[in-house]
Amino acid sequence: MMGIVFNALEDFVLETADMETWNAVIDASDLKSGGVYTFGATYDDNEIVCLATNLCDQLGVSLEDGLTLFGQYLFGFLINKGPVELQEYEDTQSLLTNLENVVHRDVKRLHPNAYTPFFKYTAETHDTGTLIYNSKRQLCVVAGGLLQGAAKNYGQSVEMEHVECMHDGADNCKWQVSFFKL
């Protein structure tokens, strides 16, 4: 997992809780990195799982809720501090259409060793479509949160129906999505 996600998690904790909470989460987690995260470096996926689990315990929220909230926050972080330009898209649909062949391609150009999740959006109408997600990390909850964060950023709301899930044994996660202008 890239350092930027850990930096986003730290910022998320500082915003929703405080530094003591973050210190406690780090202390509670068994981290090879010792909680020191640099933007462009790469760290063990286990560390984010560990941190997220301990954070949800600290905050007293379910893992699913915590990850959803984090996903929503993460989009805002990426759009401001991420390495790739996301502002140029006019709505979520166009971002999703270009996610793999533009955004993730640029990320890999800058960080050749980075593992990026796979997304594929197929539009049915201008405002509806299906979104497919695949990743070895199986963070579909975070992905769902990211989608909500993205919709909010582009002045939209989104209804998502999680019709298939890797956690249920499916090959990919699949949502039926509908977008509405706010």
Partner: peptide, 25 residues
């Protein structure tokens, strides 16, 4: 405070790591 002291130490190390990474790049 102790909390921010720990955070500061982490930031210092993160910055060193970043500089090292920058140098490599």
């Amino acid at each position: 405070s102790d909390a921010y002291k720990a955070a500061y130490e982490r930031e210092k190390q993160a910055r060193l790591a970043a500089e090292k990474l920058l140098d490599e790049k």
